[in-house]
Structures are given as C-alpha cells and as structure tokens.
Simulated assay, not measured.
Amino acid sequence: MTAIAQTATGAVAAPRVSPSATLRHTMTLSWRSLVQIKHNPMELLDLSVQPVMFLLLFTYVFGGAIAGSTGDYLQFALPGLVAQNMLFASMTTAVGLNTDITKGVFDRLRSLPIARSAPLAGRIVADTLKQVWAFALFLGLGLVLGFRVHTGLIGVAGALAVLLAFALAMSWVAVLVGLRASDQEKVQILMFSLMMPITFTSNAFVRTDTMPSWLQKWVEVNPVSHLSDAVRGLLSGGPVASHAGISLLWAVGIVVVFAPLSIRAFRNRI
C-alpha cells in the first residue's frame, strides 16, 4: 500500500517537461518526419511534381499571351509561382497531421515521456523545412529556363527567409484544418477551397493594372500579392521593404488568430 501511495504521489507530482527538453523532443520528432522521406520518397511528390508542372504550364502555355514572350513572363511569374506553391504546400501539413491523428500515431506518442506539444511542433518544423526543397527546385528549374537573379545570394536568402516566415504562419491554418476535419478528403477540399481563391486573386500571375478596378482593391491588400512582390524585389530587384514588411505583418496576424485556435483544437482532439 505504501509503494502504491508513493507511486501515485510521484505521478501527481511529476515535474513538467522543461523548455530545453521540449525543444529536444520537438527536434527529434521533426527529424523523424524528415527521415521518413528516405524510406518513402513519395512524400516529396507534392513538393516536386507540382512546382515543375505549374512552372512549365504557366510559362509556355500562358506566358506568350500574357507578357508577349515566355522569357519576360518567366521573370515576372516565377516569384509568384513560388509564393503560390508555398501556400499549396501547407496542405501537406494538414493532411499529415490528420493522418497521424486518425491512425493513432499521436496516441502512441502520448504514451512516451515527451512534451505533449512536441508531436505537433515537430511536424510544423519538418514541413516548414521541406519548403526549402520546393524553393530550391523552383529556382533551379527557373534558372535553367532563363530566369535570372539580379540580387545575388543575399537576395535569394532574403526571399527564402520571407517565404519560410509566411509558411510557418500558414502552417497554423493547416493545423486547425487538419484537426477539425474528419478525414483526409475533407482536409484537401477545405485547404484547396481556401488557397485557390487567395492565390488566383493576387498579382502572382498577372499585373494588378490588367484586372477590373473592383478586383484591384482586393489584390492590393491580398497578402499573396505583397508576398509575391517581396520575392520579386528580392530576386529581380525593385521595392522590397514595404512589401516584405506587410507580408510579415500578415504572418504575425495569422499566427495571433490561428495559433490559439489550433492549440485549443489540439488539446480537445488529443
């Protein structure tokens, strides 16, 4: 009886996981998600096939009609395509999280002596790092097709930093959808219904002044427009500070709104 009482008391009084341990657990689970790619390369399919398909499609099918030449359109559209792909890639976070929950992976992880937030944070970090691969693929293929970077490595690093900051913010939207949806099919429908209008009503693919006046007002405040312009400025030259600042403000606003909602949904679901 004494041993049982001591065990129960120890369980109640078990210390909380320290911040350093939480960080270590998060990095371990993030590495777990990245290592899976070695055994299942298909996980990078969405981040590999879609960039190639969209870049070739928009450049060679629409480029001549929109800009007069494929080369001019590629120089304009590639930063917007990178921004669009970043948003669509956030679907993988929602789908992967929903899969882990519905298949009981999170239940098994809860039985381990790790921080409760580590599985969620680990997936967010891993999926954000996967965006680096998509960016490198986009830029590499763009260089082969004729895109030119006029700002050097500093501009490329700045563009990647802005994209990753926005991707990290959008991952909280994906987390909320992944937790609320009952299955993968609903996750994909909800995420696509959200991302499609935002990206295609921006200046990612066409210039704002070619659109109807009523649509221009939305395009000018659309976060994807500012993100696309920030990446354009960082890669091709042009205004950067205002567009990058507005993009980061949008990212902060998204985190402020969706992070608490996602954490609450996570605690209720797990």
Rank of each mutant, 00 (worst) to 15 (best):
L168T: 07
M1L: 14
F147L: 05
I246R: 06
S30E: 03
D127Y: 11
S90A: 10
V125T: 07
H150R: 13
L176C: 01
I246D: 03
V132W: 02
D46M: 13
P197V: 10
E43V: 13
A21M: 06
T7K: 14
E220H: 05
V105E: 08
K217L: 13
Q184G: 14
T7Q: 15
E43G: 15
V52D: 03
V206C: 00
V149T: 09
A244P: 02
S236K: 00
L176D: 05
T102E: 14
L56G: 11
M86G: 08
T93I: 05
S69L: 10
P223T: 06
R116G: 13
H25E: 00
G10M: 14
L176E: 02
V224Q: 10
S228A: 12
T92Y: 09
L143Q: 06
M211I: 07
M196K: 03
S171Y: 00
G80H: 05
S193Y: 04
G96M: 06
M195K: 01
Q184L: 15
F147P: 10
S30K: 00
Q50G: 03
P19L: 08
A157N: 01
A83R: 06
A3L: 13
M170Y: 11
V221Q: 01
V132N: 00
G10Y: 11
V125F: 01
I246N: 04
G155F: 03
F62R: 02
L34P: 04
F200H: 01
M1G: 14
H25W: 02
L227V: 00
L47R: 13
S18A: 08
M86P: 04
P223G: 03
G63C: 02
I4V: 14
T7F: 15
H243C: 02
L143G: 07
T92G: 07
P19D: 02
L143V: 08
N40P: 00
L139R: 01
T2C: 09
S69D: 14
A77D: 04
L261I: 07
A5R: 14
T59S: 10
F76H: 10
R232V: 00
S247H: 02
L163M: 10
R232S: 04
N203V: 12
G245E: 02
L29C: 08
G142L: 07
D46N: 10
Q184Y: 11
V224H: 01
A165K: 00
F258T: 09
K38G: 13
L29M: 10
R180T: 14
L129R: 01
V12D: 01
A14P: 04
A65E: 13
G64K: 07
S117V: 13
G245A: 04
F205G: 09
H226S: 08
F147Q: 03
S225Q: 06
L249R: 06
P19R: 07
M42I: 15
A89S: 15
M86Y: 01
G233F: 04
T2P: 08
T208V: 11
G178D: 00
G146D: 06
V255Q: 08
A67D: 04
I189D: 11
P19W: 06
H243R: 07
L190A: 15
G152H: 05
V255T: 03
V187K: 07
R148L: 02
T70K: 05
P260H: 06
T210I: 12
R16E: 14
H150T: 08
A259M: 15
